[in-house]
Design a protein around this nucleic acid. Structure first.
Lengths: 186, 186
DNA sequence: GTCTATAGATCGATAGAC
DNA sequence: GTCTATCGATCTATAGAC
């Protein structure tokens, strides 16, 4: 039996899935309440700022996850090829091999009034910087350009996988992308 | 002075921009009414099915535009390099050099209950098929793979450009992508 | 902390005058 | 075809008992 929801952080995973499934505007408090198992009273107790604060908390958790599992390993890596492979493994795990979309990317496209624009921009900037730094250390020419291309391409793969409702697209395109990046390290 | 709205089609451009800016769930009839200059009475006169019919009509118009300006030229092209260049020119024009997002991609990520899933999937399938056919005729090995990669990468570029709020990302990445595709034609 | 009840606004959609 | 008025549902958010 899962631990009961006794603090904000316990509700974040379910909150993330709700926003992924319905978008920010489409995620009503009724849906959120059902998905988290928390009544409105509890939700506003944990998130006095309402839906906006819930989404912000989810974005913070996502950035923390990527910082720990993606950005920092890239910065601290000593073997570039292994670091690239590890990044794609973690990306594949996080996006559940294409069954899960990127909430940050979805908010980039669908954010009403750009309320989360700063957090969205920071996520992508941090990712590109960390990858570019690794590629530069590996002696790749145009490291910044390649990093920008790779991070963008991952987002495109997620869009395409969801659009075609076909997870083989994700596996095929992520595998191909990884091979192309590794080839640049030689 | 612009022609008055006297038929469905006249309202589609404004409708498209509303859905792009607010998403499907976030586009309320109040916003739609203001953006189109049509009262609710007129909106329901033109679109008896309400918001869902408006979005479907927009998607149909988008597919028609891409069919005429992107898919068919790819299929009918005799000079592959010129066709690729023309595709990227039309894509850049359509997405206004990165200032405009792809509504189909946004619906792929944010569609509630996947109401438009079939239209979304068809759009991407048609694009990939048309491009793959051209690449195969040009003798490119793995034409289907490259086409899938390119169409996905364009979506990623749009996401990244919007996320970073920087149209130089679009110009840089689309230019680079075009060069990489042209290199495969040699 | 969690619950019910409900406020107050806005939602999509309809009706009917013009 | 377009307008205003309005319906009933749903929305976010709050209040107050427990």
């Amino acid at each position: 039996m899962a631990r009961a929801v006794t603090e904000r952080a316990d509700a974040l995973p379910a909150l993330g899935e709700v926003f992924r499934a319905h978008g920010y505007s489409g995620a009503s408090l009724a849906i959120i309440s059902e998905a988290t198992g928390l009544g409105k009273g509890s939700l506003y107790h944990f998130f006095p700022g309402g839906k906006a604060e819930m989404a912000e908390a989810v974005l913070e958790e996502i950035e923390a996850w990527f910082a720990r599992r993606i950005f920092e390993p890239l910065r601290e890596a000593e073997a570039p090829a292994a670091a690239v492979t590890a990044m794609f493994e973690n990306v594949t795990a996080y996006f559940n091999a294409g069954r899960r979309i990127c909430l940050v990317g979805a908010l980039a496209l669908g954010d009403p009034e750009d309320v989360f624009a700063a957090a969205v921009a920071r996520y992508f900037r941090l990712w590109i910087e960390a990858l570019a730094e690794l590629l530069a250390r590996a002696g790749v020419a145009g490291a910044e350009d390649l990093a920008e291309q790779v991070v963008g391409e991952i987002q495109g793969i997620i869009v395409l996988t969801k659009a075609l409702d076909d997870t083989t697209v994700f596996a095929r395109r992520i595998g191909d992308l990884e091979r192309r990046v590794l080839a640049r390290l030689a």
